[in-house]
Design a protein around this nucleic acid. Sequence first.
DNA 1: CGACTACTTGATGAATTTCAAGCCATGTGG
DNA 2: CCACATGGCTTGAAATTCATCAAGTAGTCG
Lengths: 259, 259
Amino acid sequence: MSLQIIVPESRFPTGLPDFAADESGPFPGISPLQTYAKRLATEHHTVAAGAELGSFLGSEKRLFIVLDGWLFKHTILEDGRRQILDFLLPGDLITGLADTGHGLAQSIEAVTNASIAVIPMSAVSELSREVPSLAVLLLESAQDTLNTAYENLVDTGRRTSLEAVAHLLIRLEGRAIASLGADEKGAVPFPLIQEHIGDAIGLTAVHVCRTLRKLKTAGVIEMGRGWLRITDRQQLSDIAGLDDADTCGYRTPVHRMAS
Amino acid sequence: MSLQIIVPESRFPTGLPDFAADESGPFPGISPLQTYAKRLATEHHTVAAGAELGSFLGSEKRLFIVLDGWLFKHTILEDGRRQILDFLLPGDLITGLADTGHGLAQSIEAVTNASIAVIPMSAVSELSREVPSLAVLLLESAQDTLNTAYENLVDTGRRTSLEAVAHLLIRLEGRAIASLGADEKGAVPFPLIQEHIGDAIGLTAVHVCRTLRKLKTAGVIEMGRGWLRITDRQQLSDIAGLDDADTCGYRTPVHRMAS
DNA sequence: CGACTACTTGATGAATTTCAAGCCATGTGG
DNA sequence: CCACATGGCTTGAAATTCATCAAGTAGTCG
């Protein structure tokens, strides 16, 4: 996860069922970066679904913000095995990908058509004089990203496939709600396919299929092309092994906490 | 991983079980934080092997530096399953553990007897006026920590047990050399037991045992109580699936890159 | 319509866990 | 110094989870 900087009045990413969060969603907390994003951005890029964000990520002196669409950070091994490291939703920041000196250790691919804004680091440090809390926001964003990675690690290493899938769905749904909102029936946009889920928690698409089936036939979730609805949140939490107290999956975005 | 703040001149640490950084080692690359560490530190703590660093981690306004000993960050599920998220060696920073509001989501335990220095965040931000690059160093430290988490995730999710163990050993050995040095025979301090390795990459101790045995009988590594020696680095890299170019496991510490 | 992609399901096999027992080094108290 | 307890390592056998292979379905798009 990354800092929820922007909460765009974005409609559902291209191509997928309507789903609009079109009503200019009421977004309570606007972060500094959001406020200045348009002013700071030097470039905007659009990326087609399935395309890689290669070339212009290289330079380390930039900061990227997802404006629209879903993407994911991943590593691919030589024989094609893929590990998804994080998903990126509108409002998320993309920072410092590791550069091993001979190419990036990780890369980013778009799930749906997506658009991202590029902010030069110079503009950020300039702005941070004006808005001192900016550095703190960036650090907290990095912290959120790290915590998400840790959650993924626990899912992948020490949870059963059922627990892991349930936990991942809870977390992604929370982020989708926060970023894009839900429709009147409680469904959220969810453009991931089973292979994405598997690659995020170390399972094959086939096994994800069987696991999702259990959740569906248990009446815990409903999924369709491009959307997800959690019909029995309590049971899903139980399956995921979360404490009751643990709303989890969705920490209040930084910009809301601050205000 | 965390920022390698200290890069002690390598001597093999004192009698393995009890690692003491006794001689005021000459440290080739001195980072700002290291330079000021003693001045800034308000408290020092010692932790017995096996003990948790619970109580004084809670407050978020502190920064911790490992002075001596090995520790690890981990999450424990209700039924006792444990996932190790990162190992901490001398010189590593401990920053921002996630606080879910009802206790920490992660905690830290000492593998060996250990000592850590506590630096109040106020001192850090004060110092960062004096040493402007400090904030950058902290961010880069956070980046290293994230990259380590990602490596662990790939190992756990998408590598076979043999690949994962090999890769983890390469990375840990690199950090051990950087932090503690190797002895004349090329052995590095390695206090982890098989259960630690398993909990880091999602295997049982039994399976780690079998996997290590393959590496040992292949003549690739040697291990004893408290030490590790990589006898065939090339083959180990091959097994781990690393590119030749990829020295991996040990990125040049931040403070050396800068200068 | 045909090609394509994602999903689905069954059958089989491999990787890993679990359970169980024994081993070996270390440390401790009598 | 021995007897004994302990913790970590080792090994085997059985059970389980998950991957792989294969085939078929359904929806989408040109």
